[in-house]
Design a protein around this nucleic acid. Structure first.
Lengths: 215, 215, 215, 215
DNA sequence: AATGAATGAGACTTCATTCAT
DNA sequence: GATGAATGAAGTCTCATTCAT
């Protein structure tokens, strides 16, 4: 404990209002985190800077030290999120599977496991507030497209190698991801009430993929 | 009795707003229609009564003659929409098909045809603002569940009659609807940019159903 | 101003909302009565035409058939009330007493008996909203002054006749009315909580008058 | 109707409103002061936050920085006022008089001197808007009751000491305060038009007290 | 960097009043 | 005379944003 300068003010010992000064990067990150929670819970318009500041534990005005407007927060947030590219990260591991059944299981497990609250929050934001940032949306779309293309390439390889059965599904593998979106939306809209259904969906999903893809 | 009372504003444009007087039912409907557009485009919080009134062509105050609050408009709207039960109506016709291939085509066509702007608006509202009205949401869920059960029953029948091939899909036919939701969300988020993809999805969807269901 | 347009519309007979058509005088009276209740309970600004109409059992618009504005209702009301001249009516009876003790008792009884809810309502209106109608107030003041002069004359007579003891009180008899106002205000402000105190005041009032006036 | 061509905006360039920043305590006090004036002049409902803000010289929104609602302003105001306990403060000095005539003179002078505009404003508020805050009213009542008891005790002492003549008035000394309320109400309702009458009342009041209390 | 005070713009809502039947 | 529908004006309150310390 280094003795700081004696404050002449009779301090009430554990005052909550401790002014803490953090580096801009950290504060920005804190604010974006709080913003994600709030925006995704209430939507853009219904979220107030006040709430975000409160969640971070700073003053409203301080938010404006780090961002110049609510819009900027939103945009920065979505821009950063969209680069996350949800499942992309896992995809490498998925294809590490040694055989097709393993690949399918990896795919299904990894995909359904990616329903983190944060991912759902992003999905909700994209659906309900995406229109605010068309360029981000466009970029996200692009990202999706290329990720899709990548996945398709892998599948094509497998088919060419005779390890997967050719079918309309292998021609258009993105189709295999659709139940995933369904599950996400179900969770989004119905919350816990959807859990059971999603479980069942996952099961059917897996079975059908096995049936369709395995030679 | 000849006083015609031609109100003539000599100069300037005749922006003399003639008061139009309509029955409450019509006005309410107009307001709800406008509200659907606005709510679904901007969300609840970002939609102002002003905008709704403007869209209808009436004064803000007049909105309050017919609804007692913004919340009431929203609730009335969603309550009325949720009873629409999207595709239910068409389902009867779908199963009228004489054979399974016809049934599948009917199903796919009818389903993708139900992407009216209004239906998409409802979907968006349910996703982004559903939390405001948990009971409506619950009722909607119930409705969905029973519609699903009905569809399942029909499928079961077909399977029992040996006209459809049994598979994980026939066991859990709701799974066959998931690409539909995907397509809806794609349209919701990406708008016209999704058209092509949706078309392709529909095609794959149809082909796979044929492959999976026909004996 | 209003163009008449006789419309002979076939009346749907058994409508619950029986439109009753009353003579203007009766309606006006009804409206004024309702207005007194509302104005005095909530004050001018907090009273809505709606409430008045509701109390009468007619539509808002109908109020405007009989009065041209809220202000007019208020003014008409206060004008009519101020002419009531509270105790004036009783005063004749009071002085009918044969002797001074009887006169005093009559005076006290009659005065305290005049605390009807209506009289209190008027008092409250004069205090809280009188400023809206200075001329009515002035007229009321005048009325009070002359009533006071009349009373004073009677007292002077009694004193001259040696039936009342001369004192500062007989010189300025209005002073004898002050406890009355006190009691009124107490009732106004504290409602039932003041009842006991007012009773006691009346008693003291009576005793002191006896002591001061009787020779 | 009133087409005034008063457009005062062109010149006078320095309407650059300098933001003045004050401590909450001071602002709150300013707001409460302004609120007292406005509420008592127009009543609660007819007073707008706008007017209060204008009187203070700040923006409407700033009022809400210091109070959370109009009701809160009102309540805070009345609560603070009711604790003022009008004449209580002076009472000690009044009884400091060395003899009964001096006491009476002190009493009358102090009491009538307490008709400050502020005191009248409070009285008006209690009469016209007291019902909004029953608990404050009740507390005020209590305060009055105990002040009254205190005064009565002093009188009783004097009577016991033979320095005051026993009479219904000394038994119930609050009665001696009633002309005071009358005077207050007269001032409230008739304003300056009541001045003369109040003067005369004070004179009679003094004379009668002398006559009644001095042995 | 941090914040409390301040504010303009705008949202919802109410209400006196008018219009047309 | 009576009324339901309609509206402009105004009121309370919120909020993103700025200012000054």
């Amino acid at each position: 404990m280094t003795t700081k300068k004696e404050k002449k003010k009779p301090e009430t010992a554990n005052d909550k209002k401790r002014r803490t000064r953090l580096s801009p990067e950290i504060r920005r990150k804190q604010i974006l985190e709080a913003a994600l929670v709030e925006f995704s819970a209430q939507g853009f318009a219904a979220t107030s800077i006040s709430r975000i500041a409160q969640r971070v534990g700073i003053s409203k005005a301080n938010v404006y030290v780090h961002f110049s407007s609510k819009d900027e927060i939103f945009e920065t947030l979505l821009r950063s999120l969209s680069s996350l590219g949800k499942t992309q990260g896992n995809w490498r591991q998925i294809e590490d599977a040694e055989d097709v059944p393993g690949f399918i299981d990896n795919l299904v497990d990894a995909t359904y496991a990616s329903f983190t609250p944060e991912a759902l929050a992003i999905l909700r934001l994209m659906i309900s507030e995406g229109h605010r940032i068309p360029d981000v949306l466009a970029k996200w779309h692009e990202g999706n497209v290329s990720a899709r293309a990548e996945r398709q390439a892998i599948i094509d390889e497998q088919v060419a190698a005779g390890r997967m059965k050719r079918s309309p599904l292998t021609e258009h593998f993105q189709f295999a991801m659709t139940p995933f979106v369904y599950a996400g939306v179900a969770k989004l809209v119905f919350g816990d009430a959807a859990t059971e259904e999603v479980e069942r969906m996952k099961d059917t999903h897996r079975k059908l993929l096995h049936q369709l893809l395995e030679p």
